[in-house]
Nucleic acid binder design. Structure first.
Lengths: 159, 159
DNA sequence: AATGTTGTGGGGAAAGGTGGGGAAGTCAGA
DNA sequence: TCTGACTTCCCCACCTTTCCCCACAACATT
């Protein structure tokens, strides 16, 4: 029915002076041979980057082609500033300087799976802070959330 | 299913006094041996140039042949003012003077992949400005765009 | 501890980008 | 046919970037 998620989880890595960072083992193990070693890195909202398996990126572009607002799609495509990146011999990717600066990754990057389709690259400190904040907010409702999640297939008709 | 994209990404290069510019490594690595070293350079809208792999250009011409308005197709073909260009020993192409002037490339050129099929050649400053402008304009919708973009099929029915 | 895998950093070879000199070819005008 | 201006296309030379390889640190498993 639903296609399987490609990625689950999150992982940290360092970014060295040359702009390289390891592609975490955690996610590497979740790749299939057909995925190859090519990825596409793009700008994303909120000072994040987004990393697609190449094949997934092309699907994404195909979807973009089908938007009814073609001008908007074009604008969107332009703002992504996609870059093709490839794993080196040590399973690292080379991050372009401008993207490191945009997402402020020089002091560390956190890879976060997003809806099983692709990965977000966050500034590690900012990600931790965000998680802490969200957790704090959700903690209060946690029991209810868990309860709802199990029953009724996640239909959110509480409220 | 869909054919793979030929090009992904974007890259800058300088144009020297003789009108030469390097064909960026980034894109050269994305060529297949069958692509050869021949390209076709044409005028394009908005003071840009367009660079086709020769094979891709011929496909494009075939499409033109099928336009119902044959006179219009002929006009279009003429307006393109196509030039066959070839990589020299240093992987550079020689840009004709009139095209450098048309697209204002003397101070630098940016190669941008367009829909995976061919490359656009922009004046670098103008490209950067355009991207910056689009980003600024799209910023408000950007979060929503990104959100919608990752949902299956791009169905925008979450209102 | 011993071992193996992964993450991290750096040195150095190789490749790429850039600019210029200069030989051969083209062309217009005398 | 000659000449001079210009173009095209080699070649070389320099510097920067990229990438390959090695070494070690950080961990986890045994």
């Amino acid at each position: 029915m639903n296609e399987l998620k490609r990625f689950i989880g999150h992982a940290k890595a360092a970014v060295d002076g040359k702009g390289r960072c390891a592609f975490p083992r955690e996610f590497r193990c979740q790749l299939t041979p057909e995925d190859g070693t090519e990825f596409v890195l793009t700008y994303w909202a909120e000072n994040k980057l987004r990393l697609f398996v190449r094949r997934e990126y092309e699907k994404f572009m195909d979807e973009l082609d089908q938007w009814s607002d073609r001008k908007l799609a074009e604008q969107f495509r332009l703002t992504l500033r996609s870059t093709l990146v490839e794993l080196d011999g040590q399973n690292r990717i080379l991050l372009p300087k401008d993207k490191i600066q945009y997402a402020n990754l020089a002091n560390g990057v956190t890879f976060v799976e997003y809806r099983g389709k692709s990965l977000e690259l966050w500034n590690t400190d900012r990600y931790d802070a965000k998680v802490a904040a969200e957790v704090a907010e959700a903690q209060a409702k946690f029991d209810d959330l868990c309860f709802n999640a199990v029953f009724a297939g996640g239909s959110n008709d509480q409220k």
